[in-house]
Nucleic acid binder design. Structure first.
Lengths: 240, 240
DNA sequence: CATTCAATTTGATTCAGAACAACAAAAAGT
DNA sequence: ACTTTTTGTTGTTCTGAATCAAATTGAATG
């Protein structure tokens, strides 16, 4: 059963929220106010499903805080994490792909806050706001690039390298500097990592144990700290 | 060394070439003439490289005839076929992804003819021609969808299923009805199939031999005919 | 027609990593 | 405090598919 728990947000909607985000970076305060007035803000608990693959694409979203993952589920029920979306990015932008339904499921990986707009405003936004379309192309382009890399990776690298790549991507996107290295800034399980790499939690667990012995990482429950990023880069076969 | 052989085209540029293609389907003959006058037409031998990953994205293309593949090459020199592009579609549309360089290499899989335009016309086209932008989004969206499927496939299916999927995709896109089944309408090697599925030519060869014994396919040098598409669907685990 | 080269087949061997299995430990409920 | 559930570890087995190694077939070339 889909997990759709949500909490209403009490976040104060302030112009400064959007001013520095790429999609709206070229707008003046009046325009930003205009956009904010159309937006709905919501808080989502970690693990909440925002929309599911195949749903009518009714709204598009901007992740203000937290972390999202784009998941696809096979007929057999296996989960594949296609992509991670860090705060500040748009998601659920089906219209930008010429689609009327969401092509994948969106699940929060951490407690998150997102703005959203009815999809009917999409064309207006594209037409009206300087650079919005261009930024959207770029976002889509980057994601296409990432997916492309994933395909190459899956086709040519073995599990250890793929997991190293996945972890490097995560610490690049959400790494938080801590005492003994860089920590992935949201709860992440071995299972998650296996769903990002097309492996099994067992294999991931073994690999992490090995890396821990070598002092490359330090991990606990739903928590991974990379102590020697450089070693991971070497293991990954570079070219992240 | 990149293989860049080309032959100049003598194809007669006729309005009817574009009239029925999605990107230009809503235009009148005057507009189409306009577009054609800006286009360059060229013929490419099978195996020709049209542009390479990382090249300055100087032109965008429309494949009129033939078949293209989008290839990525790893530092180790392994080839991964990311995508096939059938006649009638745009390619090399870096601008649509907000990029200034091509994100992958384009190689013809068969003798082909393509129109192309300088990239500086891109924004004009988007602004000027009704539906061009929308169709572009759709094209991009479809490719994103395909890539997404590839990722899921690689993460969850084993080689036999992946190869079955790849072949089904090919016969859907370019299948030509022949006496005893549907033939892939361009020269394709075991190696090609392995580069589409992240496998090896040996494994592909064995699998095809097996399928041939079962009467599912019939193959020769650079040639594959699917006699029982339905069986392939079953093998693929459906969900192509 | 002989030669060369590319594509394919097939066998033998090896091994990465999945699958299976059991247990441990932490967290969350009751 | 006790049970249940979730998450993680680790051992063992087994197999799919890569790798290694030849041989064969067919097309292209001079």
């Amino acid at each position: 059963m889909p997990n759709r728990k949500r909490t209403n947000a009490y976040a104060r909607l302030d112009e400064s929220l959007l001013r520095d985000l790429p999609p709206f970076s070229l707008l003046d305060d009046v325009q930003i106010r205009e956009i904010l007035d159309l937006a709905r803000s919501r808080r989502y608990d970690a693990g909440a499903t925002i929309f599911e693959e195949g749903d009518e694409a009714e709204r598009f979203y901007l992740l203000l805080d937290g972390y999202m993952r784009v998941v696809r589920i096979t007929p057999e029920g296996e989960h594949v994490i296609a992509l991670h979306i860090p705060a500040g990015q748009l998601f659920g932008i089906a219209k930008a792909l010429g689609r009327d339904t969401y092509p994948a499921t969106s699940v929060t990986a951490a407690d998150s806050v997102a703005l959203s707009w009815p999809m009917r405003h999409w064309d207006d936004f594209v037409a009206k706001y300087e650079g919005f379309a261009a930024q959207t192309y770029k976002t889509v382009g980057n994601r296409v690039g990432e997916m492309n890399n994933r395909i190459v990776e899956m086709a040519t690298r073995q599990v250890e390298q793929r997991i190293a790549c996945a972890m490097l991507r995560l610490i690049n996107q959400t790494g938080r500097k801590v005492e003994n290295g860089i920590e992935i800034d949201f709860p992440i399980t071995r299972q998650d990592l296996s769903e990002m790499t097309g492996s099994t939690l067992h294999t991931v667990s073994r690999l992490l144990s090995g890396w821990e012995k070598q002092g490359i990482v330090e991990s606990g429950r739903k928590r991974i700290t990379v102590c020697q990023p450089h070693q991971l880069v070497i293991l990954s076969g570079a070219q992240v």
